[in-house]
Design a protein around this nucleic acid. Structure first.
Lengths: 234, 234
DNA sequence: TCGACGACCAGTATCTTTTTCATCGTCGCG
DNA sequence: CGCGACGATGAAAAAGATACTGGTCGTCGA
C-alpha cells in the first residue's frame, strides 16, 4: 500500500485529488500549506509527494528543494499553465514529473502510477545503506562524515566533502558551476568564480587516480562539471 | 472494438450520431436522459462517453462530474453555442473535449478518434522520454550535456550544442537565421551575421558524415537552415 | 601565543571557444 | 552566360574558461 502526500492549499482540489487517488488504492494525506507539507514529509514515510507550486507559507519550490536534500521521495509538481518546465524537472527543483493545472484526474493518476512504477526500479540499495552514497570506487558516508576511495579512508575538508556529496547525488549529470556554488555555499554566496576551481582541483587530487586526467570529475566546458561513477570519459 | 455511450435527449440526433460512429466501427449505446446515462456509465464499460450538456433529469454537467469521480472514461461534451469552455475542460468538469451544436458528423467522429488516440498514448507518459533528444543517428543528452553521433561521443562546445539542440527540437522545419541567432545567443546579440555560418560549419564537421554534402543540416537559401533526421535531402 | 590548516582570492599559464576577416564557390536570375 | 547575392571555407585574432600556484586571513587546538 503506497502512501501519498498531497500538498495543496485549495482544499476542494486537494480533496478531489485525494479521492481519486484513494480510489486507486493509495493512502493519501493532505497538507494545506507548505510548512505543514514539509513537516509531514519529514515524519510520514511517503512514497510520493504531489506538490502545488504556489503555496501559502513555504512555496512548493522551496519544499521541493528541501525534500531533495534530505530524501529521494519522488515528487510530482502541480504547476500553473506555462511554468518553466526545465526548472521544475531540472536541477533547480528536481521534480520527477509535473502536471499543469487545470488537469484532469485521469491524467494525474496516470502520472502518479508512471512515476511510482519508474521509481520502483531505481530503488536499489539506498534504503539498506543508510546515508552512504557509493559510486564506483568512491564511497561517502554522511553519518561518519567520512570518505573512502578504493577502500582507503581519505581526509576531506568540509567544502570538498559537500562538493563530493553533490557530485555523488547526481552521477552522470552535468552540474552547472552556478548550481554547485549555490549548493555548497548555501545560496547567498558571491565569491569569485575561481574558488570553485580550486576546490574541484583539490577534490580531484584526493579522488582521482591520475588528477591530471580525471576519470570521475569531468569538466564540461562552458557549463560546469560532471561526475562519472564508472570511469568512462575521453 | 471500442464501446461508446451517447447521452442525448433528442432522439433523432442521438441516432444520427450513433449511426455515424457505428459506420466507423464503434459499438454505440444511447441514453435519452441523464439518469439513465449515469446508470449505464456505471454498468457498461465504455471507452468513451458523448455527453449532452443540457439534459432532462440530471444534466450533463452533473453526470460528467460524477463520472469523473468514479472512472477514467474520456468524455466529450456536446454543448449549445459557446458555453464556458474553460469550465467544461477544466477541473470543474474535466471533460476531454467538446463539440458545439450544431456540429457535423465528420467533425464529431474526428474528435472521438482524437480523444481515444490521445488517451491511449497517455498511458505511457512522456516522462520516460525526458532529457535525450534523438534524431536518426544523432542523440543529444541534455542532462549529461553530451552528444553522440552514430554511437560515438562527440565533444561539442556550448554554442554548437545549443544550436544542435535547436535543430533537434524542430526537425524538418526551415529555421530562419535570425531565429537561430536570437535563440542561441539569448536575444540580445549584435555580432556579425557570418558568425552563424561558422558555427553551422563546425557543427556539420562533427555531425555530418560528409560535411561537404550535408544530409542533416540543409541550407535553405535566403532563409536559414533545416535539420533532417533521416538523411534525405538534395 | 604559535602553528597548522582550511577557506578564499588573485595572478598567470594554458588551452578552447568564439568571433572576425578575407576569399572562394555556387545558386538563381535576368 | 555573366552578375550579384548569399553561403562555405580557412585562417587567425580576440575572448573566454579552466588549471594551477602562491599567498592572506581567520580559526582552532596544542
Amino acid at each position: 500500500m503506497k502512501k501519498i502526500l498531497v500538498v495543496e492549499d485549495e482544499r476542494p482540489l486537494a480533496e478531489a485529488v485525494a479521492f481519486s487517488l484513494e480510489k486507486e488504492g493509495y493512502q493519501v494525506d493532505i497538507a494545506l500549506d507548505g510548512e505543514r507539507g514539509w513537516r509531514m514529509c519529514q515524519q510520514g514515510a511517503y512514497h510520493l509527494v504531489l506538490l502545488d507550486l504556489m503555496l501559502p507559507g513555504m512555496d512548493g519550490m522551496e519544499v521541493c528543494r528541501r525534500l531533495r536534500r534530505e530524501s529521494d521521495v519522488p515528487v510530482i509538481m502541480l504547476t500553473a499553465k506555462d511554468a518553466d518546465v526545465d526548472k521544475i524537472l531540472g536541477l533547480e527543483m528536481g521534480a520527477d514529473d509535473y502536471v499543469t493545472k487545470p488537469f484532469n484526474m485521469r491524467e494525474l493518476v496516470a502520472r502518479v502510477k508512471a512515476v511510482l512504477r519508474r521509481y520502483q526500479g531505481e530503488e536499489k540499495g539506498k534504503a539498506a545503506s543508510e546515508g552512504v552514497i557509493e559510486a564506483g570506487d568512491i564511497a561517502l558516508d554522511r553519518e561518519r562524515h567520512e570518505v573512502r576511495v578504493r577502500g582507503e579512508v581519505v581526509e576531506m575538508p568540509l567544502m570538498e566533502f559537500r562538493l563530493l556529496e553533490l557530485f555523488l547525488r547526481h552521477p552522470g549529470k552535468a552540474l552547472p558551476r552556478e548550481y554547485l556554488t549555490t549548493q555548497v555555499w548555501e545560496g547567498d554566496y558571491f565569491g569569485q568564480s575561481k574558488t570553485l576551481d580550486v576546490h574541484v582541483r583539490r577534490l580531484r587530487e584526493k579522488v582521482e587516480e591520475d588528477p591530471a586526467h580525471p576519470r570521475h570529475i569531468i569538466t564540461v566546458r562552458g557549463v560546469g562539471y560532471r561526475f562519472e561513477a564508472g570511469g568512462e570519459s575521453s
